[in-house]
């Protein structure tokens, strides 16, 4: 079974995003970038499937600027076999990302697409579901456990009141939630080995996909700021303050 893992280069999760003063977007100049944490979880799961013998090949793919090669090298160091960069400096919307992934899938024919449930920049939580729709494949989102049995995947999903388990026929799209696994750190020898693994670069234009934006950004602003309040000395002070505030 071939597993395709789309990975995204995003602002590091420890960095607080700052809105540009001209309200055109978020300032990413000189900001630390990393692999989206949910994509790391997806890579880890794919590599574990390979280690268990359920997968034969893990292909990481990213759509983004030249620097996304670093993100792909991270995936290779974690254990992916090869990587594809669809190079573009455009910011693509989830629907466009899904269309590009569909084109890559037409060439690669994976049986499983494992990806993050959400990227921590756009926070859209949409790309995997859209990709499944475009392919007319089943989807299993927000996975906290994945089991491959023959031509099916049994997936436990984190849902509103608890957990749901579904079974989907392969090929399918599975999106990873936080508790699916704890991604490994790549070891130095593996980082060195990853430098020699194949990384294919394609130009976005060569895929012939319509990636025209559907949305125009009017502005990006700072959220309303909260004022830090007061420190109270005792629990009794706290209760009397809450009474005065009318919330008890």
């Amino acid at each position: 079974m071939k597993v395709l893992v789309p990975v995204k280069r995003v602002i590091d999760y420890n960095v607080k995003a700052r809105v540009k003063p001209d309200q055109t977007g978020v300032d990413l100049a000189n900001v630390k970038m990393s692999m989206n944490p949910f994509c790391e979880i997806a890579v880890e799961e794919a590599v574990r499937l390979k280690e268990k013998g359920a997968a034969t090949e893990v292909v990481a793919v990213s759509i983004g600027p030249t620097q996304a090669q670093e993100t792909l090298r991270t995936a290779l160091a974690m254990g992916a076999d090869r990587a594809i960069l669809v190079q573009t400096d455009q910011d693509l919307e989830p629907l466009a990302v899904a269309k590009v992934l569909k084109a890559v899938i037409a060439e690669e024919s994976p049986e499983l697409v494992l990806m993050g449930k959400q990227a921590i920049d756009g926070d859209n939580n949409a790309t995997g579901q859209m990709l499944a729709a475009l392919l007319d494949w089943p989807q299993a989102t927000f996975a906290s456990a994945v089991e491959i049995a023959g031509s099916k995947a049994k997936v436990t999903r984190e849902v509103d009141g608890g957990l749901q388990t579904i079974e989907v026929d392969l090929p399918a799209v599975v999106t990873a939630d936080l508790r699916l696994n704890e991604p490994r750190y790549a070891s130095l020898p593996n980082i060195m080995k990853a430098k020699k693994k194949p990384l294919d670069v394609k130009e976005l234009g060569s895929l012939g996909v319509d990636t025209a934006p559907r949305l125009k950004v009017v502005k990006v602003t700072e959220p309303a700021k909260r004022q830090a309040g007061i420190k109270v000395e005792t629990a009794a002070d706290l209760v009397s303050n809450l009474k005065t505030a009318g919330v008890l």
Binding site: I120, K216, V217, V220
Partner: peptide, 14 residues
């Protein structure tokens, strides 16, 4: 909201 609510994005849909 985007970026964990650290930015609010206003978009116009075509």
């Amino acid at each position: 909201p985007i970026y964990a609510g650290n930015a609010m994005e206003t978009v116009q849909s075509a």
